[in-house]
């Protein structure tokens, strides 16, 4: 089986590839969009610069993944500006709006996401689709900084009384949504993604590994999980009842996403645009 050329894919391969890439691209895109809300609003000028930087990194990663989708015949405007918001596949974790001043939400969300992103990228290092494997390395080196940045902040906030309380609040709200990181879009397509070697770990495996990392870490900061994901000492599991109503992956989203999509497409619609501007050359 050859996944070398995008033009020679059969329907099943194409579906699997498209599904995988949309998850990747939409997650990064929407997370970046939310991060930029902190520009000119972060706790200090230095932390403002740092989070803006992470936002640009994530947006750059989204750009790389959307670009791979362009191989399948899509264009940027179809993937973002003219796309039905209910067709976006990102986790609901990244779409939620920040309450003004809720820096605890920003850094905890970043931690939960980046810890998962690290595992997901590892599972893509040897992807059977060469363009995916090629891009993973570049993305990983930027993500490493994000994860450290998030942990640094989470640990500092956890030391203070107010910080700890706010982290706990954020965790209560975010944790169920973070679990949707590991929800399938479609079980059959999800099986294909792994069978075709596009990604070499299943979502269940990734989810359990993620839990085995974040649960002890959060508990070490004396944060309590809103639901128990622990089966025994070192076994974790995500179950149906732990999940929120909206899963993101299946196109169901919270209201925050529809508002966000409306705002971010405002200029494009207002000016009656039918294509998007490129500044950079197409990625190699």
């Amino acid at each position: 089986m050859s996944l070398e050329s995008p033009t020679e894919l059969d329907a099943r391969e194409r579906d699997a590839l498209e599904t995988l890439l949309k998850r990747l691209a939409d997650d990064e895109f929407v997370l970046a969009e939310r991060y930029t809300e902190w520009q000119v609003q972060a706790p200090s000028l230095e932390s403002d610069l740092a989070l803006a930087n992470n936002a640009q990194d994530e947006l750059g990663h989204a750009r790389l993944w959307y670009d791979v989708l362009e191989d399948l015949g899509f264009e940027e405007q179809e993937l973002i500006y003219e796309r039905d918001p209910a067709d976006f596949r990102h986790t609901t974790l990244v779409e939620r709006s920040f309450e003004e001043g809720d820096w605890a939400d920003a850094v905890l969300r970043s931690y939960l996401y980046d810890a998962a992103e690290e595992l997901r990228l590892e599972a893509l290092e040897d992807s059977a689709y060469p363009k995916i494997a090629d891009r993973v390395g570049k993305i990983q080196s930027e993500e490493a900084y994000h994860l450290e940045h998030a942990q640094n902040w989470v640990e500092r906030l956890a030391e203070g009384e107010e910080g700890h309380e706010r982290l706990q609040d954020a965790l209560d709200r975010l944790f169920p949504h973070a679990l949707t990181l590991f929800e399938p879009v479609d079980r059959e397509v999800e099986r294909d993604i792994v069978d075709l070697g596009l990604r070499d770990a299943t979502l269940e495996e990734l989810g359990e590994e993620w839990l085995s990392i974040v649960v002890p870490y959060l508990e070490s900061l004396e944060l309590e999980l809103p639901v128990s994901a622990q089966v025994d000492d070192d076994t974790f599991e995500i179950t149906e009842e732990m999940l929120p109503e909206e899963r993101g992956r299946d196109g169901s989203h919270t209201d925050a996403w529809f508002d966000l999509h409306d705002e971010l497409t405002h200029t494009y619609r207002d000016l009656g645009r039918s294509e998007t501007t490129k500044i950079m050359e197409k990625p190699e």
Binding site: E37, Q56, E263, L264, L271
Partner: peptide, 12 residues
């Protein structure tokens, strides 16, 4: 206008 920028590159 970071949010309202009409393309990924413009947003970046």
């Amino acid at each position: 206008f970071i949010r309202q920028a009409p393309s990924i590159d413009r947003k970046l």
